[in-house]
Nucleic acid binder design. Structure first.
Length: 300
DNA sequence: TTTGGACCTGGCTCC
DNA sequence: CTCTTCAGGTCCAAT
């Protein structure tokens, strides 16, 4: 199948960084400058030039998303309606630190992910590293997802349904797949959602205000403030949320001397740090956070 | 309300 | 090659 294209400048979207920086764990660079992954139950191939985003899929017509064209799916996933250059200008003008240290890393966007994939992937992220998380998520899809076919020698699977993760045998299977103590969190959270809500409940959290959505998420086992915030930001449309991880915490201490007395991230401290950056960066604070964090984690 | 430990695993550094 | 430490946290028990 031939490549199709969408107009999109590299300053608005840096594919490589955006796909690999630890938001989604399912994209792989299968050739130089070319990424393969699963989105809306389709296998996608993506690449870009300075002003075009190229895409093709394994299947022509998506059964599970027939109401959307493939172009619509990508525009939604990358949130291309958001003018990133304009936001960089705003963050640079409001925050000298962003301007001097982060503003040159162009095209880092927040993906609009599926809440189910987002939640269960990030339950895996606690006290863990990106490389291992990626392997775990891949094995989870292989074990509990459905096959989407083979593409250039690689098999691809859908992200498992909540129902399939709620079954009795899941914890033990995940343990064998190397999930450690997170195996229980995944199974218990899935079971809690199926027993108290429904498969679609997570999607509906998009309609709730931030605080309510977060508080609902934190009722799940293995979901604390940080994971809940990641889900709010990356799949529930709460663009101003800044998840406070160890990196953000380190940075925050430099600029908020009043917080230095705390040895650990207490709920109060967590909120103070999150609020600080939310006020500093504004409506899309979570996006600015991802730009800054990328720079920190990869030590550029 | 706050604090310190334990928790699975595998990649990493340093012997 | 073995050992220690640690990685984008969370839960639990004891203050």
């Amino acid at each position: 199948m031939a490549w199709r294209k969408i107009a999109c400048s590299k300053t608005e979207l840096d594919l490589g960084v955006t796909l690999i920086c630890g938001q989604s764990f399912r994209w792989k660079e299968t050739a130089p400058g070319e990424w393969t992954g699963v989105l809306k139950n389709l296998v996608w191939n993506l690449k870009q030039s300075d002003d075009l985003l190229f895409y093709k899929t394994l299947e022509e017509s998506p059964a599970a998303s027939s109401d959307l064209t493939q172009e619509d799916i990508l525009k939604d996933y990358f949130q291309l309606h958001v003018n990133l250059s304009k936001l960089y200008e705003q963050w640079s003008s409001d925050d000298p630190n962003f301007k001097s240290k982060a503003s040159s890393f162009r095209g880092v966007r927040i993906l609009r992910q599926d809440p189910v994939e987002n939640l269960f992937s990030f339950i895996c992220s606690s006290n863990n590293n990106i490389s291992r998380i990626s392997g775990m998520v891949e094995r989870m899809c292989e074990e509990f997802g459905t096959s989407l076919g083979e593409y250039e020698g690689l098999h691809h699977y859908s992200f498992p349904s909540i129902e399939s993760l709620a079954k009795g045998s899941v914890e033990q299977k995940l343990r064998k797949l190397g999930f450690g103590y997170r195996a229980k969190y995944i199974n218990q959270s899935a079971r809690f959602i199926m027993e108290n809500h429904s498969e679609h409940w997570l999607h509906n959290l998009r309609k709730l205000p931030y605080n309510e959505a977060k508080s609902e998420l934190m009722k799940l086992c293995g979901v604390g403030a940080k994971v809940a915030d990641c889900v709010c930001l990356m799949s529930l449309d709460k663009n101003d949320v800044v998840p406070v991880d160890t990196h953000v915490w380190q940075i925050a201490q430099k600029y908020l001397p009043s917080l230095r007395s705390s040895k650990t991230i207490t709920p109060q401290v967590y909120n103070a740090v999150g609020n600080h950056f939310r006020e500093l960066w504004g409506e899309y604070a979570g996006w600015a956070h991802s730009v800054s964090l990328h720079r920190i984690v990869y030590n550029f």
